[in-house]
Design a protein around this nucleic acid. Structure first.
Lengths: 227, 227
DNA sequence: ACCTCAAAAATGTGATCACGATTTCACGCC
DNA sequence: GGCGTGAAATCGTGATCACATTTTTGAGGT
């Protein structure tokens, strides 16, 4: 089970974007896609060297991620690491995701266009391809792309931020669980039904399918944690 | 309408607490209690001088608050300020508060003790006293104390963080609205009924009363924004 | 009085240095 | 060979400096 490590620094990013934003995006994407395992300790200087920046912008990016509970400072020695999930916290994550993501899907459905549906289908195809190849990392990436392509349409910045924070927290553990399960029994995704509901304009069905998709995925993680 | 300005630096805080945490707590409390108006611009060096620290820990505290959308960087000139609420964002705040706070109240109710009920009654008395004196700031403070005394019992750190973030965002605008309405017509609080439900162990009623309390308060803000 | 515009002050960002605490690791002892 | 033990490396935190950009200000002219 190879961890690809930190995401590449986004070279082609707008020059207007501050370094600390670029560092944040690189770290956030790596966490959401589960490319850093739970419990892994990280350090400011190490990250700074890997990204070829001074420790300063890394500190601000990390402070942001700590605020989102995507990283934590160990109380004992004040060192930085990716948090592990307790059952209590995982249950909260599940509940919160089931609040906000069906709502985001519902709002996004109202702004859907034919172009976006095509892109969603592409995401889902990449997801299926990754599944059949046993490519867990590809699955994580495609699944993330699919969900947030829809959520981004919602014009609900607060909800979007909440969802991002929840994915930041669940990403590392999700990657471990799905990697352990193997791609064979990964969530029999409701994406197909969701796309059909989007095409037919049935917004309530979109909400429902998203709720089921989230529930099923989190249920797998819960079983893995308890078992 | 006098704004008391920044909260005092928490002198009596544990020496183990890092400076940036102390700065964060001071800023966060000031924002939640609405002591900094929406649109108000702040600056790192000014804050650092007011709190007698170097700009460095202030930067980290501010970065945390930006992550919580309690502060924002204006895109035009990259300067720091307290955000103003659009109707869209206020509606999201209302929805999210109605998700998480009844749940926190429900969970907290299961851990309630006689001692905490006494403290909640004290909070509510201070709230009532502030109301009769027309003391908006006292009302804000007592209301905050009441809610989070209960929420703190819930042993749900994620939900608690979500609630804090939501209060950080609504605090400044809430203070403006309530200050404009005058204390006469402030939310006819459901705290009394909530306390009775806590005493009788009716957890479902606790959840319901909290939902109504949140809804009523946010409804006032919504009317103020539209009107 | 009122505009104009250049000098001065203030701002966020990033880099670098210093410090105390903690971890890491190799050397030498049992 | 295993195991403490001290030196060296690494850690997070805070302060200070440098820089480009923006805001504020104040003097001069009309």
């Amino acid at each position: 089970m190879g961890y690809p490590g930190l995401n590449q620094f986004p070279l082609a990013m707008d020059d207007e974007t501050s370094i600390h934003d670029q560092v944040y995006e690189a770290l956030a994407e790596s966490l959401i896609q589960g490319q850093i395992p739970p419990g892994k300790s990280v350090s400011l200087r190490t990250l700074a060297n890997e990204l070829n920046v001074s420790p300063m912008p890394v500190r601000e990016a990390v402070r942001r991620l700590i605020a989102q509970k995507a990283l934590e400072l160990q109380p004992s020695n004040k060192r930085l690491r990716v948090p592990s999930l307790s059952e209590n916290r995982l249950l909260q994550l599940m509940t919160a995701r089931q609040w906000v993501e069906p709502e985001l899907a519902f709002l996004g459905a109202q702004k859907i266009t034919r172009d976006v549906i095509v892109e969603l289908k592409n995401d889902d195809e990449r997801l299926m391809a990754a599944l059949s190849k046993g490519d867990v990392d590809g699955y994580m990436k495609a699944n993330y792309a699919f969900h947030f392509r829809l959520y981004n349409l919602a014009e609900a910045d607060l909800f979007l931020d909440m969802a991002r924070t929840l994915w930041l927290q669940s990403g590392p553990f999700m990657r471990v669980v799905f990697g352990r399960l193997g791609t064979v029994q990964l969530p029999q995704d409701h994406h197909q039904e969701l796309i059909r509901a989007l095409e037919s304009g049935d917004h309530a069905a979109v909400r429902q399918h998203m709720a089921e998709d989230v529930h099923e995925g989190m249920e797998l993680m819960l079983e893995a944690l308890k078992g």
